[in-house]
Amino acid sequence: MIELFEVTKRFANETAVDGISLRVETGELCALVGTSGCGKSTTLRMINRLIEHTAGEIHLDGHPVRTFNEQELRRRIGYAIQSTGLFPHWSVARNIGLVPRLLKWPKARVAERVEELMDLLGLPMAQFADKYPHQLSGGQAQRVGVARALAADPDILLMDEPFGALDPITRETLQVELRALQARLHKTIVFVTHDMDEALLLADRLVVMRAGRIIQQGTPLELLRSPVDDFVASMLGGENRGLKEAALTPVSERMLPLSPRLISRSRVGRDATLHQALAVMFREHADRLTVVDDDEMPVGELSLRRLVGAGREE
């Protein structure tokens, strides 16, 4: 869906992005991470031509972005930012319906789409349609921003630190909601964040940038298990990388076949993470768990030794 070929961006004598190549597959959530000034937001904004690239090529669905009319391009790509960018003198419903109106959708279709998205984002029409941005909490305003980005049903969604200004509890709630939303909609998303935990939670593909270059990219587990250098290892949590890996690794990857004579009363779902399994062990003072399926039927077992990867047991 999105391809960058040796893309460079220079501002006067400064190189913000330096010859990067990247491919984002259809339906994939790609997170760009790195320290401040590494070029991740510039990379994002070059995709929808808010910033023009200096060299290289950017393709959307096989076509160079410069073959598209700028305004048409931006209307077909959803864009959500940290500050929401909502018009303060417009109601929630009017803000969400902006792009469909610009695309000259029939009024009835716009109204239907606005209601659909407000329901999807947990913003009941009766309660929120006529409110103004200043009457919303930070989390509610960010939901409206995401709804507006999705209004014209774009194939691509660009998100630049969308939850960065929110308190930790609201941020975590919206991260979970975005994961659930993506599971339903399967959009192609490029997501910029400085929060590595957020990136690890959300990303299918993780891209670590430094000084305008891509240092390493791959799945979160690939990077956690094999960081290319000390910088990437540090970005991923340093000595805490093992715990972050446990938060992404499913129990099913480490469980052993069930031993009927050793069934434990302490249980964990096979789709739970190793981090969740460890929490159960601590809470229930158990060094062995019975692994169950969605119907609570035992399908395997997990010991503390196996959880930390000490090898297969007799």
Results as ranks from 00 to 15, higher is better:
Val251Leu: 01
Arg261Val: 14
Ser259Thr: 05
Leu158Asn: 07
Ala108Pro: 03
Glu253Gln: 14
Ala31Arg: 09
Val190Pro: 01
Ile77Thr: 04
Gln217Glu: 11
Leu86Trp: 01
Glu222His: 07
Thr219Asp: 05
Val208Tyr: 01
Leu158Ile: 08
Leu103Cys: 07
Thr43Gln: 11
Glu296His: 11
Arg265Glu: 15
Pro227Phe: 00
Gly56Ile: 10
Ala141Arg: 02
Thr219His: 06
Pro220Ile: 03
Glu222Arg: 04
Asp295Glu: 12
Ile2Lys: 02
His59Cys: 03
Phe11Ile: 03
His194Tyr: 04
Pro260Gln: 10
Pro133Cys: 09
Glu3Tyr: 02
Ala183Gly: 14
Glu3Phe: 00
Pro162Gln: 04
Arg10Val: 12
Val291Asn: 01
Val192Asn: 00
Glu284Ala: 05
Val92Thr: 14
Val291Tyr: 00
Glu52Arg: 04
Gln217Lys: 02
Leu223Trp: 02
Arg113Lys: 11
Lys40Cys: 00
Val291His: 00
Leu200Met: 08
Asn48Lys: 05
Val146Tyr: 06
Arg306His: 15
Thr54Arg: 08
Ser252Met: 10
Ala147Trp: 03
Val146Asn: 04
Leu248His: 05
Leu44Asn: 01
Phe5Gly: 00
Leu278Glu: 08
Asp294Lys: 06
Arg288Tyr: 08
Val207Leu: 04
Ala111His: 05
Leu274Ser: 06
Asp130Asn: 10
His134Met: 06
Arg306Val: 15
Thr290His: 02
Ala93Glu: 14
Asp160Lys: 09
Pro154Tyr: 08
Ala286Glu: 09
Asp293Tyr: 00
Leu243Gly: 01
Thr193Met: 04
Leu136Gly: 01
Arg265Ala: 14
His89Tyr: 11
Glu296Ala: 12
Gly145Met: 05
Glu239His: 10
Gly85Ile: 11
Met46Val: 05
Asp271His: 14
Ile156Pro: 01
Glu172Asn: 15
Arg23Tyr: 07
Glu301Ile: 04
Phe191Gly: 06
Arg306Ala: 15
Pro257Met: 04
Glu314Val: 13
Glu313Asn: 06
Lys104Arg: 15
Phe68Thr: 00
Arg210Gly: 01
Arg270Asp: 15
Pro250Asn: 09
Arg76Ser: 07
Leu181Asp: 02
Pro133Arg: 05
Thr193Leu: 03
Thr42Cys: 07
Arg179Gly: 13
Gly19Gln: 07
Leu258Tyr: 01
Leu206Ala: 06
Asp204Tyr: 12
Gly218His: 10
Val7Ile: 10
Thr8Ile: 12
Glu6Ala: 15
Glu25Phe: 10
Ser234Met: 13
Leu302Pro: 02
Glu57Cys: 09
Cys30Ile: 11
Leu60Ser: 02
Glu284Gly: 01
Leu22Ala: 01
Ala286Cys: 13
Arg184Cys: 03
Gly122Lys: 05
Ser226Glu: 13
Gln82Trp: 10
Asn69Lys: 14
Pro88Lys: 12
His194Asp: 01
Arg143Thr: 06
Thr84Lys: 05
